[in-house]
Amino acid sequence: MHRLPPQVKVVALLVFVIAVVLMPREAFWAHALAGCLIAGVMILAELPAGFVARRMLVEVPILIFALLLPFFGQGPTTRVLGLTLSVEGLWGAWTIIAKATLGVGASVVVSATTTIPDIIRGLDRIRVPRVITAIAGFMVRYLDIVAGEFARRRVAMASRGYEPRWLWQGGPLAQSAGSLFIRSYERGERVHQAMVARGFTGRMPTYGDRPASLRQWVLGLSVSAVAVVLAVLSVTVIR
């Protein structure tokens, strides 16, 4: 799993998510089997459970929203454990929770087994426009630096007694963000000079991406293929 070429993993993730989205909401069994698939891949990739759980936390805001749906949904209601809940809301909550969990789970597998530069390289390989991958690459490269600069400023401000607690005390922070923007812009100019100095003419060169073999494609897409079969079955036969 760790060794698969990034473009294979990116395509596999995309196919898997589409398959999950296409599964009808009544097909509990299909969602459950897809969940087993992802869990199986996680075990195969030897991802630590605690690590996966922490990564899955990004889903929490979505879950909270989904859990509110049964209480505020319209239409006919039903009683569960003494609570009056909307039937449509319950279906909505189930759909969101199931599909989001499966999608986030699959994303965790890919992101945990692929470095960010590799993911960008994979996107490049499947012909995502070079402008977009280049922007993504620059963002990854410079996010740390800009965040670091902002952190140093906060320390410098705190060292001179500025500890904002309320929104109306945020002025200096906003000004600092503004000048950070200017500084980043100036850095962009210097980076561009450095690029031109090394012969940049407007097209990002490729380096070090190797085509994936047929075997790697088959191996990488096998899980997603099972998910597609589940989706097709749940749409056509069982329903």
């Binding site: 960010i116 210097r190 690029m195 940049f200 003419t201 380096y207």
Partner: peptide, 21 residues
């Protein structure tokens, strides 16, 4: 400032940038 000079996601890609151009 080396942070102005190194702008690619990996060291290898960055060193390749010039000769590839």
């Amino acid at each position: 400032d080396p942070d102005d000079q190194l702008f690619m996601p990996t060291v290898g890609q960055d060193v390749a940038f010039g000769p590839a151009n």
